Simulated assay, not measured.
Amino acid sequence: MPAQHRQFIETWRQQMPDWPIMAWTDADIDWSVRYLQQAYATRGWNRISNYMRMHALNRYGGFYLDTDIELLKPLDPLREERAVLGFQVAEPSDSWVNGAVFGAEPGHPFVRRLLRAFHEEMPGWRRMGDSHGPGLITRLLRDEGLSRCTGAPQHVAGVTLMPVDRFYPYHWTESFTPACITPNTFAVHHWEHGWGGQRPLTARETLRALAAATMPGPAAALARRRIASEKARRAGPGRGAQALDGVEPA
């Protein structure tokens, strides 16, 4: 994990010292899920992250935070909400609502709807920009009636949607400046640009994706072997294994 991200996580501990922090790595992934097999086969680390945050929230509840989130004040005032997301831009767009900060009670219906979309609708092997993340969240919220962004929290499908300044006070095309922070800002997303591009699959990735789609059992076993090999390669002699990063190659 980059040193800067470790510093951001330290702000979580400073702001909420009584909250437990749980981390998900490749060791926690259920490789029987076909979407995850396909995403791993095509090195879609951000797609795996998009899925796993929904899995974690559905099972445990709490707040999911990307590791490039700097926390400025405790999230305790939001604990009364059944689910919490934030607009990343005020203007309507296909990626209106981001999931880099996502709070939910265990088994929340909207989280379950997102998981169902991953299982039934989303091609894990396909690079689609952020359509596996903010694009998917926004699309499903629009299906539930989302039509505007205001300067106050609003409720759609049992989800409290927070204004832009709460979690995303500056745009991903801008540089951070403390002037963007308002008295209402809980957190700052520092936009590490890990969502990747939409380059064509290589021949090897295409074969892996086909195997994941048609032979899920062997594909899961192969994924586990590749992960073990990757860990050993990254660790090197005399070092502990390191988790895969969350950046998808462009």
Rank of each mutant, 00 (worst) to 15 (best):
H119M: 05
H155P: 15
I137W: 12
F167G: 00
I181H: 11
Y170N: 12
L140S: 13
I21N: 04
P183Y: 08
A179Y: 06
R13H: 13
G145R: 04
K73M: 12
R6C: 07
G107E: 07
V188M: 12
G238L: 04
G133R: 11
A3R: 14
R199C: 07
L71H: 13
D28S: 03
A243F: 06
E121C: 05
I9N: 02
E91F: 05
G236T: 15
A3D: 15
D76N: 03
V164T: 03
R113P: 10
Y35K: 09
T11K: 12
A213V: 06
R239F: 11
Q198E: 10
G44T: 11
V89K: 04
Q198M: 15
R116Y: 11
T214A: 02
S131I: 01
Q37S: 15
I227E: 00
T11F: 07
E70V: 08
A213C: 06
G158W: 05
Q88H: 04
S49Y: 12
R43S: 03
P109H: 05
G238I: 02
A220E: 15
M52L: 03
S93H: 09
L244A: 07
G158A: 08
W19I: 10
L161R: 11
D76T: 08
L222Y: 10
V97K: 01
G151Q: 07
R47L: 15
R82K: 10
T67S: 07
L57V: 06
A41H: 12
R233S: 08
A235I: 00
S131P: 00
D94G: 15
A23H: 11
E120M: 08
I21Q: 11
Q15C: 15
W45P: 00
A211N: 14
P183F: 06
H155F: 13
E174K: 15
L36Q: 10
M52E: 12
S49T: 15
A23Q: 08
T185D: 00
P2G: 00
S93C: 05
A157Y: 08
R148S: 07
R113Y: 01
P77T: 02
E174R: 10
W195H: 13
A3K: 04
N58Q: 02
R127K: 13
M162L: 13
Q242V: 00
R112H: 04
D68L: 00
A56W: 12
G61S: 08
L36A: 04
P109M: 01
A220T: 14
P216M: 09
F110R: 11
W172H: 14
A187S: 12
E248Q: 14
L36S: 11
H193T: 02
A39G: 06
V247D: 00
M122S: 09
F167C: 10
P106Q: 09
H193R: 05
H108C: 13
P74S: 15
G158K: 12
H5C: 00
L78P: 04
